[in-house]
Computed example of a mutant assay.
Amino acid sequence: MKAINKLINGFSRFRDEYYCREDSPFVELQNHQEPSTMVIACSDSRTDPSLILQCEPGEIFVVRNIANIVPPYEPDSMHHGVSSALEYAVKSLKVKNIIILGHSGCGGIKALMDNKLAPEDEFITRWLSILGSVRDKVIARFALDGKKASVEACAACEMEGIVHSMDNLMTFTWVAEQVEKGDLEIFGWYFDLKDGRILDYHEDSEAFEPLRPFCLS
């Protein structure tokens, strides 16, 4: 129960900070939200986008899943959680930015690279198969051929997975249309847990480079 008690106490501090003050942001937020940015991040407990990006309530619309994957556009009778959230963000909230936020040390990518996905898994293996072609590409580049994937190979797959999800975003016609009109921008960011940096994908160089914050002064 200690872990639960910590969460309860955390909620109490949250109420003190955001509800029990005269200028509470929830006076307006209780009626509507107008986030300018959607963040598609990993479910990993170490990579909370609101914490990493220091966002206040109402600033970002967040979807989290194993390995921060965006599936391709598949308008069938199956259930599509990420796609439905994406549709809501683009069509209803009219976000101006979509960030795919990946990270180092991703357990899902590691299992995919080492081919250690449990056969008894009901959902994870099928979900990660979206990145099957990415895995094959990285394995060929590093000439692994059944060998255990190195940290460098896993990092390459993590980054390639971000780019693959960025490409998948463009298979949604209503995303592509907004991008082409200049009303929506797509970013691929990679959070390095070791040194706390974010690397930003540059399409022109096809490489991830350190994100350089704008000077606020």
Rank of each mutant, 00 (worst) to 15 (best):
M1H: 11
M1K: 08
K2P: 05
A3T: 08
I4F: 15
N5W: 15
K6F: 14
L7T: 10
L7R: 12
L7H: 13
I8C: 09
S12V: 10
S12Q: 15
R13G: 06
F14V: 03
R15P: 04
D16G: 08
Y18T: 02
R21V: 15
D23Q: 08
P25G: 07
V27T: 14
E28I: 07
E28N: 13
N31W: 11
H32L: 09
M38R: 00
V39C: 02
I40C: 01
A41R: 00
D44H: 01
T47Q: 01
S50A: 12
I52Y: 03
L53S: 00
L53Q: 04
C55H: 09
G58Y: 00
E59S: 05
N65P: 01
N68G: 00
N68M: 05
P71H: 03
D76L: 06
D76A: 03
M78G: 00
S84K: 02
L86R: 00
A89C: 06
K91R: 09
V95E: 02
K96E: 12
N97W: 02
I98M: 07
I100A: 01
L101K: 00
H103Y: 01
G105E: 13
G105Y: 13
A111Q: 10
A111P: 07
L112I: 10
E120A: 12
E122R: 11
I124S: 08
R126V: 13
W127N: 02
S129Y: 04
I130M: 11
G132M: 06
V134G: 08
A140D: 11
A143P: 11
A143R: 14
K147R: 14
K148E: 15
A153W: 01
E158V: 03
G161H: 04
D167V: 13
N168I: 09
M170D: 06
T171W: 09
T173F: 11
W174N: 15
E177F: 08
V179H: 08
V179W: 04
K181I: 09
E185D: 04
G188D: 06
G188T: 03
W189G: 03
L193M: 13
L193Y: 09
D204L: 14
S205L: 07
E206K: 15
F208K: 02
F208R: 01
E209R: 12
L211Q: 07
F214H: 12
F214V: 14
C215K: 15
